[in-house]
Design a protein around this nucleic acid. Structure first.
Lengths: 405, 405
DNA sequence: TTCGGGCGTTCGGATTTCCGAACATCGCGG
DNA sequence: CCGCGATGTTCGGAAATCCGAACGCCCGAA
């Protein structure tokens, strides 16, 4: 019944936790057991794989399950929560259910009934098909927005950094829409030598299909006028535009007409960078790896857990595109039958000769750069910087003293 | 607070029932007291007037409140149920709330708190004639002013920020007035390309109805002259104008004729921004939610109490319009069956943009990457990695534990 | 089988860090 | 001149971190 499901167990009591964990594992579930609230926040906010349900004790050594739930709700849609508690009251149960918890069980409980209720609140599985963008909640949201965009015919604006897959989103909208049989014409304005010609060619080719304008912020004024006129005509085609980080600056500087932008910005699909949804990186890695491995002469056996962890922790300034490039490189040059971190990040090998800095050294440099960044943002305001960094003024002063700032 | 509301009280205990009934009547509620389940089914299924809420005991001589609720749910959407019970358990509370009960209180209870919770779950039903704009005193004042305006025939000036529902007020004045059968002609001067043409078209269309001029501060001088002439004619129609925050500046700069303004400003209805009447935001939320949820293919179960709190705390720079937009977005993209704060405020998910990570967070990520690097180099050898990092084995273990490595 | 070493884990105390509460100082404007 | 707010500096206690010393477990070598 729970086969293949990932259940998070938040419980500080050893005996109770062990017994539940064991039973859930017996049922085939994948259990993540954390014993502290702070760890649970981390484990649920940025899970390695999506969590299907959370079994949560209320009294924890460093907080309460209620706090945990409220904290998660502030920034994300939490998985269904089943609270278990020994000394809870009715008021607490009512409060939690009103806040959106899925269920509430008092200890001690019959294991069979508990499992029933847990299974009952698991959302039906099998929506893997329409999740081509990742497994994070952010990625699922993109999938929903794409489906919505495909259903109507209004202009869409895709926003995201370099290599986040804006073109993929545009193609998918086209593919899911009722124009899927019509042409899909792409004008990439940032790569083109002559953006105007690129725009004209795409407009000429699009017919009643989907016109995809990539790199909108690079469209020169003449092109903006032309696009505006084309929108007024009115066109047979549907417009999907994409812009990157430079859009806001272009609007501020007047390099892009505000009125045109607002005509395009009716339905916005923001794609957060990979760094903000770390659980998508290993997911993408495996997806691409499987696809590429199948076409390989001598298939690799798999990916090292260390490599997966390294992929998770990397910053991915080039987002998905960088990941693909690294993987292609790694699979071409891999020496063994397994992908290791050094295959994906060959540039790190150069440091092999010298000594790794001490942990405290690394910590100090990290603190140093971080403090400087905060001070820069506040314009040298120490008190505000301390607030920003979440430490007291005196502590910040102490650290600055120590680090010589 | 309960004035004019119809509350059904299902309670077999004479003393308890009498005390609640008396108190509810004191608060101005209309109370229907039934002492048997069978009677309650009848009274709730075919009430003389719609019931706004049900206060329901669980143990009744001829059945239970649970049965009553279940019976009603089979054939209709019952009003919000507040269960009160003396010997109920947590399981019962959980079961009822999961079934859709609004609240659950154990006897004995503080009457004040009980009334709060009862008032909290009262939802506006349909077009509540008396309170169409909110439940704050400011909103009730708007209702009174609208009614007064509808009774006479003088020009009305509605003042309020963007998205505060100025057009709604105007329509309501028209609807309540004796011109309700005549045309309602709206000229939106702020959105129109050619405000003059917009004004002329509306004047031509209005006949003996109500002319609504929205965005008065944007009316160009020529239009002001024309409006002035039209007022002198004298017109058959009644004028309702609306202006936003820019009006004072327009008057100061002379972009708007002072004399014309004072001819329009005879009866002013000011609409304060939502931020100044926080209790209206959740009210509006529930109103819109109910209306939209009814038209939904798969209705949501409800709104998390946390989301409600977030709505109350938000600033609402875009007022009601922003609320509606957020709700539409949230209901389209909600992943679960309950609305959570993150559904309504998806932009908070990307906190990385504005908020710098805490110093300890930065330190943790730095330590994490550094430890991983060391482990990678030693091939997973913990002792060597600890030596490399200059910490003891136990410390490294502790850190790995904390950072989830 | 025993032995030893790597590893996971706990524990108590030494040490460091962190914070709030002070107090002095330094502009800065009224 | 004073008041005010931000900063520099010190201090003591609370909280954390770190470390060595254990104990038990597992696995491979002897």
């Amino acid at each position: 019944m729970l086969k293949g499901r990932r259940i998070a167990l938040v419980e500080d009591d050893e005996i109770m936790g062990a017994s539940i964990e064991q039973r859930l594992r017996l049922e085939g579930a994948d259990v993540v057991w954390v014993k502290l609230m702070q760890r649970a926040v981390g484990a649920l906010r940025t899970p390695r794989a999506p969590i299907d349900a959370v079994v949560c004790d209320i009294r924890l050594p460093d907080g309460t399950g209620e706090d945990l739930f409220a904290t998660l709700c502030r920034t994300a849609t939490p998985p269904p929560f089943l609270f278990i508690t020994g000394q809870g009251g009715i008021d607490q149960a009512v409060r939690l259910l009103q806040a959106g918890a899925a269920d509430y069980v008092t200890k001690p409980f019959e294991m069979a009934g508990f499992l029933d209720r847990l299974a009952h609140l698991l959302r039906p599985k099998g929506e893997a098909v329409d999740q081509p963008f990742g497994q994070s909640s952010a990625a699922r949201r993109i999938g929903v927005l794409v489906a919505q965009a495909a259903e109507n015919d209004r202009p869409v604006l895709v926003r995201g950094g370099a290599g986040t897959g804006k073109a993929l989103v545009a193609r998918r909208i086209h593919h899911l829409s009722d124009r899927s049989a019509a042409p899909f014409a792409e004008a990439n304005l940032s790569r083109a030598d002559d953006p105007l010609a690129e725009l004209d060619a795409a407009i000429a080719a699009v017919g009643d299909g989907t016109l995809f304008l990539n790199g909108l912020e690079r469209l020169p004024p003449k092109g903006q006028d032309r696009l505006s006129v084309w929108l007024d005509s009115p066109p047979l085609a549907r417009l999907v535009a994409a812009c990157g980080a430079g859009m806001e600056a272009a609007l501020r500087d007047g390099r892009f007409r505000g009125d045109l932008f607002f005509r395009l910005d009716l339905f916005e699909i923001p794609i957060p960078p990979l760094a903000e949804r770390p659980e998508d990186a290993p997911w993408l890695l495996h997806r691409m790896f499987d696809a590429m491995n199948a076409r390989r002469e001598m298939p690799l056996r798999g990916i090292s857990a260390l490599a997966e962890q390294a992929v998770r922790d990397h910053d991915w300034p080039g987002n998905g595109r960088e990941l693909r490039a690294r993987l292609v490189q790694a699979m071409a040059t891999a020496t063994g039958d397994t992908l290791f971190p050094s295959d994906l990040f060959p540039e790190r090998q150069t440091t092999a000769a010298d000594r790794l800095p001490t942990l405290s050294e690394a910590r100090d440099t990290a603190e140093r750069t971080h403090i400087l960044r905060a001070l820069e943002r506040t314009g040298g305001h120490v008190i505000e910087a301390a607030k920003l960094l979440g430490v007291s003024r005196t502590t910040l002063w102490e650290k600055m003293q120590k680090l010589g700032i």
